[in-house]
């Protein structure tokens, strides 16, 4: 039950993009087509879950025992950067089709603040190993939900007659605002 609550809260109540403002760059940048949005979601899910798991283990078994918690930021970002490289190499070897689908998104993920943000949040919230993993999965779903829905709307938006000054990014932000408004309806259900 507790795990279900973590997922619901991460997906709807405090949605990582629309409520926590993490991962805005890909949210605006790669949301013009549904297809690319799905690819990005896949890559982020992959990296986010593994990164949260690995950073959790490093935090608990290295940083805390050595008393160097202040090295958290630098350690986490290095772990994520090397992880992205590693995932890229492994995917290329074992599953070329998957690499074809996710490959171009992987380098972008190092600087996706959603990944680092979730890893830091999981540590901050004092989650256990299983809880952290569930938390990461929930946030990945939340990211996907926001990104894919948003790209669907933006595809439709292309067909409409938008005032020239609002074309592109400005109208995208306003649409995102309305989506965030809709997601606020979930506030307080957990």
């Amino acid at each position: 039950m507790e795990y279900i609550l973590i997922i619901i809260s991460a997906v709807f109540v405090s949605n990582i993009v629309l409520n926590q403002f993490l991962g805005i760059c890909p949210f605006i940048g790669v949301s013009s087509k549904v297809e690319t949005a799905i690819g990005m979601t896949g890559a982020v899910t992959f990296v986010m879950v593994i990164a949260t798991l690995v950073t959790y283990l490093i935090y608990q078994s290295v940083l805390i025992p050595l008393g160097i918690v202040y090295m958290q930021t630098i350690t986490f970002i290095l772990v994520i950067a090397s992880l992205v490289q590693l995932v890229e190499i492994i995917l290329k070897k074992i599953s070329p089709p998957l690499y074809q689908a996710l490959g171009i998104f992987l380098p972008l993920i190092t600087t996706n603040c959603a990944v680092l943000g979730v890893a830091v949040l999981a540590v901050q919230k004092d989650f256990g190993l299983l809880e952290s993993t569930v938390f990461a999965i929930g946030n990945a779903i939340g990211f996907g939900l926001a990104l894919i829905t948003f790209s669907g709307i933006r595809e439709q938006l292309d067909l409409l007659n938008v005032p020239s000054r609002m074309k592109g990014v400005p109208i995208a932000f306003i649409v995102a605002g309305l989506m965030a408004l809709a997601f606020m309806g979930f506030a307080g259900i957990v």
């Binding site: 403002f21 000054r165 400005p170 995208a172 932000f173 995102a176 605002g177 965030a180 606020m184």
Partner: peptide
């Protein structure tokens, strides 16, 4: 209150960008 809640962030930035475009024009 809407403007200090999360949706307000998106809306405010969206309209500021429109304003920036108008100034540019």
């Amino acid at each position: 209150l809407l403007f200090i809640l999360p949706p307000g962030a998106f809306l405010a930035l969206g309209y500021l960008l429109v304003l920036a475009n108008m100034i540019k024009e």
